[in-house]
């Protein structure tokens, strides 16, 4: 564990807590893409198959459980909770995310560390996580004004993988046989997808204006 990775994990956790706060405090999921939330739930379920077989540390196990439970709870809440689901922007959340699923799985079959069930699902979760934010970014562009909590949610979600890139650079220089090309390249793509969001988020923060993504 290093400070970059810990900071990244805390930002990831913060993004989930901000999203839970928004949904439970405002009893609304307006501006949130259900498709992105479904993809994230799949990312965690596909990545943490080793939850009960490989024990890494208490921290690792607890965080995996938190991510799995929170992501499935958010999907369940947006689909089933009578009050929350009324505010879901169904007509705006139209990104065909099944393509992202199919493409990520196809790529995982071709590019993986070992052609085993667990490694293919791990690579699938890495590729899927890189593109999972797309339905959310498209929804933000369509829904014009972005409320503060939603903006903070996306910001922390983008920042977490940027810190993971610093973590991989650090590990590359400090550990002998460290090589995670699949995660590194995918993480770079993932963070790059947030570039324009980060730019408009910074502008709105600097000018103290409402965050607005150009359509």
């Amino acid at each position: 564990m290093n400070i970059f990775r810990f900071a990244g994990d805390m930002m990831h956790l913060t993004s989930i807590l901000v999203l839970l706060l928004k949904i439970y405090a405002t009893k609304s999921c307006s501006g949130i893409s259900l498709k992105t939330q479904e993809l994230y739930a799949l990312v965690f379920l596909a990545r943490y198959l080793d939850l009960f077989t490989d024990f890494i540390s208490v921290y690792n196990t607890i965080m995996k459980l938190v991510f799995i439970v929170s992501s499935t709870a958010i999907v369940w809440c947006m689909k089933r909770d009578r009050v929350v689901r009324r505010s879901y922007d169904k007509q705006l959340d139209t990104f065909r995310h099944y393509f992202l699923l199919a493409a990520s799985f196809a790529l995982a079959l071709l590019v993986n560390e070992k052609f085993t069930f667990q490694e293919i699902f791990w690579a699938f979760s890495i590729y899927l996580e890189a593109v999972a934010i797309l339905p959310q970014l498209v929804l933000l562009q369509r829904s014009g004004n972005v409320d503060n909590l939603t903006g903070q949610y996306v910001f922390f979600l983008g920042a977490y993988r940027a810190f993971y890139i610093l973590n991989w650079i650090y590990r590359y220089f400090t550990e002998t046989h460290f090589s995670r090309w699949i995660a590194c390249i995918s993480g770079l793509v993932q963070t790059a997808l947030y570039a324009d969001f980060f730019y408009y988020y910074y502008i709105s923060w600097k000018n103290n204006t409402k965050l607005k993504l150009p359509a």
Binding site: R5, D54, I56, K64, Q118, H177
Partner: peptide, 10 residues
């Protein structure tokens, strides 16, 4: 080391 050991990240 097996690749699984490298899966120490979330």
């Amino acid at each position: 080391s097996s690749t699984n050991e490298l899966k120490d990240e979330l």
